[in-house]
Amino acid sequence: MREITVEAQSWPIAGAFTISRGAKTEARVVVATVSEDGLTGYGECVPYARYGETEKDTIAAIKAQQPALSDGMTREALQRAMPRGAARNALDCAMWDLEAKRAGRPAWELAGLAKPRALTTAYTLSLAAPDAMEVAAAAAAERPLLKLKLGQGGDEDIARVEAVRAGAPRAALIVDANEGWKAEDVMPLAREFARLGVSLIEQPVPAKDDEVLRGIESPVPLCADESAHGLEGMKRLVGIYDFINVKLDKTGGLTEALSVMRCAKARKLRVMVGCMVATSLAMAPAMLVAQQADYVDLDGPLLLAEDRTPALRYEGSLVYPPEPELWG
């Protein structure tokens, strides 16, 4: 009989991680395991208050699936049994891991994918004063892709990007407003950021307001994050955004994330695969989706004071696929 266990864990962040909605000094994750016949599959998620998720509710939602799992629930049935979100992500990924171990085959092979390769990930700079962001950018100047957390728009955000560009003149830049801008700020800021060589603007306005972006001709491509969750609603994003940010905590696991990737390609939406601040266990299944992405942002473990063991292998900004000892 398959059995579920679930626990909350805390992983200290190196310093603090700050975005427009606030700062934190630890990564709070929930780890689910599914065990059967002496084998155990693992999955990790990050409950996110922005989406109304709490640690307590996430743990309860995972535990509630024990009867169905004991009765032989499949991953396909799991998609129907639980709404997309962090809880389903942890359980879905744990089931993938268990399936791979039972089959004696890697998860990528079970998913019908090509053998994964090492990828270049973005490296995130937290929101801070421009001079502090310039120092952080200079320290990360050899990384090929930097992602900047910005604030409420206006001259202060322009100063931040100018400072980062001065600190890291050769790096490609993504800026992430985390819904912090007003609609009237988007085009003026996009023009300034085009001048500064920014490659992508992520979630400039609140998700509830993103229709204001429909049809505008931004000189820098726009990417949906908080506006893009799973398969439902993707059609509406066409004509508003150029990219979507696929995160397993939003899609509710690897199963739907792979479907979202296929749907995005069919709708001519380009893709960034992103993450929450979490350990290598959360990044590992996302590496399979990221193989087909235009941008990869799987730097969560790089922002921690320490990662779990075993961990993904990072060499600078190059991240390697997981070994079976970690996941899949």
Rank of each mutant, 00 (worst) to 15 (best):
E7K: 15
I158N: 01
V277A: 02
G230I: 06
L213F: 03
T74R: 03
R308T: 14
V260N: 04
D225W: 06
L298W: 14
V161F: 05
D92T: 06
D157S: 14
T74P: 01
Q79Y: 15
L304T: 08
D299R: 03
R308G: 08
L200R: 01
M287K: 00
G151C: 08
E134G: 07
A77R: 06
T251Y: 13
P204I: 07
P204N: 07
R262M: 13
D225F: 13
L237S: 01
A128Y: 02
E162N: 02
T120P: 04
E109Q: 05
E162W: 01
A140T: 02
M234Y: 15
A77T: 15
V135Q: 14
V30G: 00
L281Y: 11
A100T: 05
L213T: 00
L312F: 06
L91V: 11
A107P: 04
D209L: 10
Q65L: 15
E232I: 12
R84M: 15
I174E: 01
L254A: 00
T18W: 12
T5Y: 04
P130K: 02
S227Y: 09
D92C: 08
R236L: 05
Q291H: 09
L312G: 00
K208G: 09
S10T: 12
I216C: 14
M1S: 14
P322H: 03
C275N: 09
M234K: 06
C93S: 09
A282T: 08
A177H: 06
K56M: 11
A87F: 15
S70F: 13
W108N: 01
A168R: 00
M261I: 14
T18N: 14
F17R: 04
G274C: 05
S317Y: 06
L39N: 00
R236S: 08
A194S: 14
Q152S: 07
D294M: 03
M272I: 13
G239F: 10
Q9D: 05
A132F: 02
A8F: 07
A311Q: 12
M133I: 01
V198C: 03
T54H: 06
E36D: 11
K208L: 15
K250R: 09
S70V: 11
R50L: 13
V260D: 12
Q203W: 06
P301N: 04
A190Y: 04
A172Y: 09
A86C: 15
M283D: 10
A311T: 09
A61Q: 14
Q66F: 13
E315M: 11
W181D: 06
A64W: 07
A207N: 12
D92F: 13
V31Y: 04
